[in-house]
Each structure stands twice: as C-alpha cells, then as structure tokens.
C-alpha cells in the first residue's frame, strides 16, 4: 500500500509538472502568497497590481485613526458594517454601488475633497471589496486613497474596539 501510494504521488508530480509546462493556464511553482498578518507591515493581497493605491498595516491605520483626519470607509455590505466596524467609519458598500454616475455618488457620499486622506477596508484577508472600491475611487480622481487590507479583523485582533450599531440583526 505504501509503495503504491508513493508511486501514485510521484506520478501525480510528474503529470502536474509536465502539464503545467505546456498549459496555457500555467502557474509558477512558487507563488507570491501573503501569510496571515503578524501586525508587521501591511497585508497585501496576491491580486494587488502595479498602480493600486498603497496598502497600510495596523500601525499606520491606528496612527491615522488617532490623528482623526483620515476618512475611514468600510466597503462591506450595510449589515456587516452595522455589526462591527472601525469607529467613525462611513459605509460605501461596493456590492451595492448605485447605477449611474459613480463620481457624483462618491463626491456626495464621501463629502471630502479629492485629496483628502481616505482609508478603505473590509473584513480582512479574505475580502477584496476594499481593493475594488479603492481602485474605483482612484479612477474617479481621489488621490489620497490607502487600503487597510487587514481590515476590521486585524483591527480587532490588535485590541482596537469595533463599533456596533443598533441596526445589527445578528
């Protein structure tokens, strides 16, 4: 049984390498994947691209929150926003962006100048809503957007309080 299992594994490795060498969907043998945040430096998702807004970690997020100037934007849906968000954030749910003129919507919802510091987050490593929202805001001329990809989870993990509103139904 052990001998058969080893042969099967070797065969799988050979097939995998051979097919990956010719497949149009091939991937590198060692990928660039981020580990869970240890609090040192920002979490950067694998799908981040050149030209994306900068990513910040818990220390920077905390500092900016303490300074109180930056606008924190939660990109998750309203119920999740209600059930635990970074205090003082506003909610711009990426999945429910209205049809029509997004630029106008951003301007009226955010209510800050285009160069105002904005920090976008969602719930953490599994969530890419913050990245998508940040790209959109950047495209509509917001120049000072940062992404706190560790999100509400990293925020809570490092001892910061989350704000819960009465609309939360969980």
């Amino acid at each position: 049984m052990v001998r058969q299992a080893i042969i099967l594994l070797l065969l799988a490795v050979v097939l995998a390498l051979a097919v990956n060498a010719v497949s149009p969907n091939s991937i590198p043998y060692v990928g660039k994947w981020r580990e869970l945040s240890s609090g040192e430096g920002p979490v950067i998702p694998p799908e981040a691209e050149e030209g994306d807004p900068p990513f910040i970690g818990i220390e920077v997020a905390r500092m900016e929150h303490d300074q109180g100037e930056a606008l924190f934007v939660d990109a998750r849906e309203p119920m999740e926003f209600a059930c635990g968000t970074i205090p003082g954030s506003i909610n711009v749910p990426f999945d429910y962006l209205p049809p029509g003129d997004l630029g106008q919507y951003f301007d009226s919802t955010l209510g800050v100048p285009k160069d105002h510091p904005i920090i976008i987050f969602c719930s953490g490593e599994e969530c890419d809503l913050s990245l998508h929202l940040a790209r959109n805001m950047q495209a509509f001329g917001y120049t000072n957007v940062e992404i706190f990809f560790g999100g509400s989870r990293e925020w809570a993990e490092f001892g910061e309080p989350l704000e819960r509103s009465p609309e939360c139904e969980q």
């Binding site: 998750r76 849906e77 119920m79 999740e80 059930c83 635990g84 999945d95 969602c122 719930s123 953490g124 599994e126 969530c127 890419d128 809503l129 989870r153 969980q170």
Partner: peptide, 10 residues
C-alpha cells in the same frame, strides 16, 4: 466568527 461579506458572496 469573521462575518466576512467578501469572497464576492459571503
């Protein structure tokens, strides 16, 4: 415990 609205559809 994460209550992530993410993954496109949590």
């Amino acid at each position: 415990s994460i209550d992530c609205g993410c993954f496109k559809a949590a």
